[in-house]
């Protein structure tokens, strides 16, 4: 057998250990004779080691098995702390965060400087499960600021709504808050993020949140900066 062909695309698979024994032998024979592939191998091997820093549990989704006793316990602790500390220090009070978080797929939300990455790879794929009946979609582009906002409002239990928001074209460096406004004019914040200093036009971020508002009461969703300026608002 002559030296196997040069196929750099197999180096990654070799590093990951997914080649068949025959392919493995062939790849090793080739690596012996090809400095270019060896260089590739060294780089990818380092990366492979870094993959090991992420625990495999990072790719599990959903609540724990076995009911929500743990959740109830945690809520009790937080209520206890809340009632002891009437005055709030720290960032949470300032932010007045209602809820944030949670991409439906993969390993959580990527916020903050996310706008620095490309539209095709910055945000994970949307959730695969079908949206429940009653879900509303809305979007708008603000004529003045140029910011765009797309919101999906999903009915949830006990008078809550889930909100999935995509926003973009917001001037860099701004602290943004997401608000949902009821028909009666009541506002609830349901998330926030910081637009990266190097944010590129055309890139957007995706955030999920929840708010204590019945879906029938939802009038609009908006992005507001920390000066109180409405950057974009979309009626729902």
């Amino acid at each position: 057998m002559t030296a196997p062909e040069h196929d750099k695309a197999l180096v990654g698979a070799y590093v990951l250990g997914v080649l068949s024994p025959e392919e493995n032998t062939a790849a090793e024979a080739h690596l012996d004779s090809c400095p270019e592939c060896r260089r590739e191998l060294d780089e990818l091997r380092m990366l492979h080691d870094e993959l090991g820093e992420v625990p495999p549990e990072a790719f599990l989704d959903g609540p724990p098995d076995g009911g929500d006793l743990l959740l109830q316990r945690t809520l009790r602790e937080v209520r206890g702390i809340s009632s002891r500390q009437r005055v709030w220090g720290g960032s949470l009070a300032a932010a007045g965060l209602v809820a944030v978080v949670a991409l439906s797929v993969g390993a959580g939300v990527f916020v903050g400087n996310q706008t620095a990455s490309g539209p095709g790879n910055g945000v994970a794929a949307p959730t695969a499960s079908p949206l429940p009946p009653g879900t509303k979609h809305a979007s708008n582009v603000d004529a003045t600021t140029g910011a765009h906002l797309a919101a999906t409002v999903i009915p949830a239990n006990n008078g809550w709504v889930k909100l999935q928001v995509q926003a973009g074209d917001i001037a860099p460096g701004q602290r943004c808050k997401l608000f949902v406004t009821s028909k009666a004019g009541k506002q609830e914040q349901f998330g926030g993020w910081l637009v990266g200093a190097n944010a590129t036009p055309g890139k957007s971020i995706t955030l999920d949140g929840t708010a204590l508002m019945s879906i029938n009461d939802v009038a609009s969703v908006s992005v507001v900066n920390d000066q109180g300026q409405v950057l974009v608002n979309t009626p729902v």
Binding site: G62, P64, V101
Partner: peptide, 11 residues
């Protein structure tokens, strides 16, 4: 806390 629990609790 609920949304964190529901999304990340298992992990």
């Amino acid at each position: 806390i609920r949304s964190l629990y529901e999304e990340h609790g298992r992990s």
